[in-house]
Each structure stands twice: as structure tokens, then as C-alpha cells.
Design a protein around this nucleic acid. Structure first.
Lengths: 199, 199
DNA sequence: CGGAATGTTGACGCTACTCAAGTCCCGTGG
DNA sequence: CCACGGGACTTGAGTAGCGTCAACATTCCG
């Protein structure tokens, strides 16, 4: 119940630590990821305003499965786990609504992960870009208008690939006239085509 | 609340159909899978006794995301969705326990899917085999003792690969003396080594 | 201005899929 | 009983997609 402002690239909680609290995103965006033995970072999802983080750990009484890191400036409220659990136990209607929410969320996560297994990088990239520029045409990269500021490295990880492959993919899209690449900015020139690639 | 016995390879419910009921597995095993545009079948999980199927669809009031098909003979109880929801609404403790269960389940699913993205076929195969022969040494294939009866095709789909690749992988393990392959049966000759591959 | 971080590009290799022969097993029917 | 046919399984050759490594260009920033 205590809002806190995080800077970009701060951890809200860390994989493997006890789930002592749950977090409610007020503004900004965060990524949830796991780290493999290899050290590689696997992004499991991106969350924004209205989303709850760490819910499953708190409910199941197990450590957080993922690390939550801010993508940009974000305001996040921490809710102590114990008092939250008491609240839920004392408030059936809240419990029910959480149940519905968790069911929905769980399905979405499953969908995303299955998609990541079976879609090519080009499609995932198109989807990512389409999702960033909701209806509009400007996205990303050390610019501060419209989209997030992020490096190719970060973008690649969100999409689930490497910077090299992402670079090739983006330039491929640019060659088709779908994007316009300028080191600081990715401009969508042909949204319908992008959406078609994203299917 | 009506138990029903299914034969192997019967569908309990089908992806895309309204989630009118939820199902409780009494005995046997089922696979949950999605079908992609391509027509390809993606197995999302395997469920056994004590597991609930279709929970998320019923709770969220959306169609089933997956198809549930029996792997062998299975007894499954159907619980009408509406009466289940009323039961949950009228029974906070039940709701709370479901919440915990869903949280756990959701995490396990996530883990499995992430693993599938990032482990090689050999490792996933080893894991599958190790999971089948819980501590013992015999598994699978038109035999009826110990494991399930299934074709290479089915096994491949559960592991998330093709029959050809699975065949090569199995014979690779056999060459290392870890397995003994006989058309009707896969025999584990070196369980520790198998477990080490499965990590 | 120089060094570091970031982005781009090329060459290469690896994993696993696809396609296409086979081979083996089994049940069927002559 | 044997020949046959079909399905499951195996094996090989070819290939696609993408990651890795390395060289290079560019920008940022002290």
C-alpha cells in the first residue's frame, strides 16, 4: 500500500527470493524474466498499469519465480503478503475476483509462451512493434516520445532473440518499406503490412 | 460430479468450445494441447489423478484454450460449470484453496513451457523418460506393464518434437548404453546417467 | 580526442525439421 | 502356412532458421 517510484532498470523483486509482498503497477512498464543456468535471461512477460506482480508467489507461499525489472520510470505499490492474504481470507468477493483474474492471466501467459515456441522471429518482432505503437507510427529507442527508450539488446530480449538477429530482422522489414530505421528511432511506415506479418 | 470412463484417445473437451464444465481426473492420464493454424499439435501439459481440467475456462468464463485427450483409459468426473461457480462463491475457503492451487499450477505450467523453449531435445527426452519410469526401469510402447502404451508419434508430440528426431535421440541414448530399445519397449539400463542428462 | 558502448554485417555452425527411402512387424486373406 | 499390404519405425540427405563469433562502423561522453 506504499507507492514507490522506480527508475528504469531497477529490480522490484528478484527470482528466488521469498515472496513477502505483492506489487501493483500504477504506471510504467516492467518485464518479468527468469535466468537460466547458462546465465541467459528469458523474458516471460511484460506488465503495465493495473497488473499485479508476485501474486502467484504470495498465494502459493513460494519464492518468486521471476525477477521484475522496470523498463522505464514506474510507480509501483507494495502490498505486504501477510496482510494481503488476511484480506483475501476475510473477503470472499475479493478472493473470487482474484480467482477470475488469475485464470485469465494464466491463460494469456500460456498463450504467449506457446507462441514464442512456434512463431518465427519476424512474426514476433512484428507483433512486438505493433503492440508498441498502438495504432500510431512511432516507436522506441532513446527517444522519449511515444514509446519506451531501449537498446537493441533489451528489445531483442523482450522478443526472445539476439541483437544480431533482431538487427537483421529490422533491416529486412525496412527493405520492404515497412519500417524506417534511424539509429534513435523505429518508424512504422506501413502499419497494415506490419499487422499482417503479426497476423 | 458424474464420473465417466474414457477409452484411450478420446477427447474430454475441445479447444474453442465454451467451458460449460470442469473435469476432475480420478485415474489415467490426459494431455492438453492446442492446435496451431498450421494444424500442428502443441502439447501444453499432461495431467493425472487429482488434477482439475478446464478450471481456467470456467472461472474466466471463456472457451477452453486447449483440447484434453486421454492417453490411456481414464476415469474423469464432470462438474457443471454453473453449479461449481455457485459453490465457490458460497464457500470462501474453497475459493481460497482454489486460488492457491491455481497459483501453483500456473507456475508449473510456466516452468514447463520455458524449459521447452530452451532445452534441447535430448534433455527433454531424458526428462520425459525419467518421469515415466518413476525410479524403475521399464517404460512404454504397446506393452501394458509399467508405462503407457503409445506410439513414437505420440511420444514425440508429448516431448515436443518429431518422430524422426525422437527416433534418432532414442538410438543415440541406446548407443550410450543408457537405454535398450526393443520395438515394443524402452528399457532404462542406466537410470543415473539418464537423470544426469535430465539434470 | 580517445575509448567504450551500441549497432551492423558477414561467415559459419548447430539443432532439429522435412522429405524420401527403406525395414520391420503384424494381421489379413488366399 | 505363406504371401501380401499397411502401419509403425528407422535411416539418410538436404535444408531452414537462428545463434555465435568476429570484424567493423557509429555514436556517445568524458
Amino acid at each position: 500500500v506504499i507507492p514507490h517510484t522506480y527508475l528504469p532498470h531497477e529490480n522490484v523483486f528478484h527470482e528466488g527470493t521469498p515472496a513477502l509482498a505483492l506489487y501493483c503497477v500504477r504506471s510504467g512498464a516492467l518485464k518479468l524474466f527468469r535466468r537460466l543456468e547458462h546465465g541467459e535471461e528469458v523474458v516471460v512477460g511484460v506488465r503495465g498499469p493495473g497488473d499485479l506482480l508476485g501474486l502467484r508467489g504470495v498465494l502459493a507461499g513460494i519464492p518468486h519465480a521471476t525477477t521484475a525489472t522496470t523498463l522505464d520510470r514506474a510507480i509501483v505499490c507494495a502490498i505486504p503478503g501477510e496482510s494481503f492474504l488476511e484480506l483475501v481470507r476475510g473477503n470472499p468477493m475479493l478472493g473470487y475476483r482474484l480467482l477470475v483474474r488469475l485464470a485469465r492471466e494464466s491463460r494469456l501467459t500460456e498463450e504467449e509462451l506457446v507462441e514464442r515456441n512456434h512463431c518465427h522471429v519476424a512474426k514476433r518482432t512484428a507483433r512486438f512493434l505493433a503492440h508498441q505503437c498502438r495504432g500510431e507510427a512511432l516507436v522506441i529507442s532513446t527517444s522519449d516520445r511515444g514509446g519506451l527508450a531501449m537498446t537493441r539488446e533489451e528489445m531483442a530480449r523482450l522478443i526472445g532473440t539476439t541483437p544480431e538477429t533482431l538487427s537483421r530482422t529490422l533491416h529486412g522489414l525496412a527493405d520492404q518499406g515497412i519500417l524506417r530505421l534511424d539509429r534513435k528511432e523505429i518508424q512504422v511506415r506501413n502499419l497494415p503490412a506490419l499487422l499482417k506479418l503479426a497476423e
